[in-house]
């Protein structure tokens, strides 16, 4: 679809208190446009709790219910149950960071997913706890500097989108702030599906990742072009790569070198050759794993794209 066909109405208002170059505002703006404002947002502790602005003002022009860190999905379940009782078809959307999704919010997320509650859970993943000032999270990649991993994180991230696939829910997808039309279309498709839906958006954070604030969109693209972030969509269990990731998987596009992505960020600037190698191995494994899930759609081992 063309950008000109996107919803004109603005639901994330200018003058909010986000950092310059914030990926979350860009993503939320796109998501709410796709939902045409017919949504209730449930927001656990995260950057959005701050940038929506202090009472009595708000930068978000749909109903917002702020909830405690661990309980976003459960709060959404309660809201949905009430709206269903009232016969209202408003989309209940959880808008959570990776802390409220991967870590402290995981139990409630898994519970709501297993129950199949009719919720759209969106994780804007900036791969760290940014609201508290850049600490490692379960989504922080191996090697990344944070204020709780000064020499670089020693563990790889866990992958909650894969975990959601394992829950057997009707919709799981990844997106990136680098490709907003792709995000918009995914939200549109998710909206048409009933049940628990999970969407994870890579949100490159300039102050957290240590890159210039005018490079957010570019970083969102580079993450995908280098294979570090993989775009896919699973509808009713049928998984496919999308966008640039699809072109890469089908051999129509060569991956950019991972080093280009890593070394353009201050958080990775200290990495050694061995550490970059370790990340490379992780990324290859990830592609292979997902390629196996995309049964029959590609026939080559994805690893070969990594020469």
């Amino acid at each position: 679809m063309k950008i000109s066909e996107m919803e004109r109405e603005e639901y994330v208002l200018p003058g909010n208190t986000s950092c310059h170059g914030c990926p979350s505002t860009v993503a939320l703006r796109t998501v709410l446009k796709a939902l045409e404002g017919n949504a209730v947002l449930v927001i656990p502790a995260c950057c959005t709790s701050v940038y929506m602005g202090p009472f009595p003002n708000s930068a978000i022009n749909v109903p917002v219910f702020n909830t405690a860190f661990a309980s976003a999905a459960a709060t959404a379940s309660g809201i949905k149950a009430s709206l269903e009782w009232q016969g209202k078809d408003t989309e209940v959307v959880v808008w959570a960071g990776d802390g409220g999704t991967y870590d402290i919010g995981l139990q409630a997320l898994s519970g709501a997913a297993e129950r199949g509650d009719d919720i759209l859970f969106i994780c804007y993943n900036n791969e760290m706890y940014s609201n508290t000032g850049i600490q490692r999270s379960g989504a922080t990649p191996y090697g990344a500097w944070t204020t709780t991993t000064w020499k670089g994180k020693r563990e790889h991230k866990k992958d909650v989108s894969e975990l959601m696939l394992a829950h057997g829910i009707p919709y799981v997808a990844t997106a990136s702030v680098g490709y907003l039309r792709d995000l918009y279309e995914k939200v549109k498709r998710a909206r048409k599906i009933r049940g628990f839906r999970y969407l994870e958006i890579l949100a490159p954070c300039p102050p957290g990742w240590r890159f210039p604030m005018d490079k957010t969109i570019q970083m969102g693209k580079l993450a995908v072009e280098s294979g570090m972030w993989i775009l896919f969509e699973s509808i009713e269990g049928k998984l496919r790569f999308t966008g640039v990731s699809k072109s890469i998987a089908e051999g129509r596009r060569k991956m950019k070198d991972l080093e280009e992505y890593l070394l353009s960020q201050g958080r990775f600037s200290h990495l050694t050759e061995e550490e970059i190698g370790e990340i490379r191995r992780y990324v290859i494994k990830k592609w292979e794993k997902l390629a196996r899930l995309v049964e029959g759609e590609i026939d080559a081992a994805v690893a070969k794209f990594y020469v």
């Binding site: 219910f65 309980s71 709206l83």
Partner: peptide, 15 residues
């Protein structure tokens, strides 16, 4: 924890 969270959500939505 989720039980109370869901009750809070339901009450906030008007039930």
């Amino acid at each position: 924890h989720s039980a109370m969270a869901a009750c809070i959500g339901a009450s906030a939505a008007g039930s």
